[in-house]
């Protein structure tokens, strides 16, 4: 099993940390992992992205331009990466601030309004965990339990009080995705 993921959004949205949490969870699941961030000028105030590869085999190139999954958090990143998802792949995106929605019909596209939901839960910073929870509902490459343990590893001790809130957001993301899937099933 190899899952090649791009996570992209604005700097400060928790793009790099989402990837880091997934990488830690992958290590806890005894997988090979790589986490390759953009560290260039874009990090300094524009868009940020990270390539996360989770695999049961030795990872060859940590730098790739075609992905199994895109987790997309803003319009620029959607414009940039929609075309980079392999046919048959998955695109999960937050509908917040999106005016040009994805159009490809050879990939599975899922929208989760995570920013909105996180605001409603009075926990705006956990929106990235809502998205991640949603993604894991579609592709359970990592167990939610390991992601929570990954959070413990990747957050400094002083922020550990935030873990229950993040764990709740992960669960909520899963619920929201189940709802998306249920409605889709009904429409068929």
């Amino acid at each position: 099993m190899t899952e090649e993921i791009i996570i992209a959004g604005f700097g400060g949205q928790g793009v790099l940390s989402m990837g880091k949490i997934m990488a830690y969870a992958g290590v806890l699941q005894d997988m090979e992992v790589s986490w390759m961030p953009s560290y260039g000028p874009e990090m300094r105030g524009g868009t940020a992205n990270v390539i996360v590869i989770l695999s049961t085999e030795r990872i060859s190139s940590p730098i790739i331009r075609r992905f199994d999954t895109g987790i997309i958090l803003n319009q620029q990143s959607l414009d940039k990466f929609e075309g980079s998802i392999k046919p048959g792949g998955v695109l999960v995106y937050d509908g917040n601030g999106i005016s040009r929605h994805p159009v490809r019909n050879d990939i599975s596209i899922y929208r989760i309004d995570a920013t909105e939901e996180a605001a409603r839960l009075n926990s705006p910073k956990t929106f990235n965990m809502i998205i991640l929870g949603g993604f894991l509902e579609i592709k359970p490459v990592l167990s939610v339990e390991n992601v929570v343990n990954g959070l413990k590893k990747s957050l400094p001790e002083r922020h550990h009080r935030l873990i229950p809130e993040n764990a709740k957001a992960l669960q909520r993301g899963g619920e929201m995705m189940r709802e998306v899937l249920r409605i889709r099933e009904q429409d068929k």
């Binding site: 880091k20 990488a23 290590v27 090979e32 992992v33 790589s34 986490w35 390759m36 961030p37 560290y39 990872i59 940590p62 730098i63």
Partner: peptide, 10 residues
């Protein structure tokens, strides 16, 4: 190089 310096692996 910058890629190996910046990336995380086991």
């Amino acid at each position: 190089d910058g890629a190996i310096g910046q990336m995380m692996e086991k």
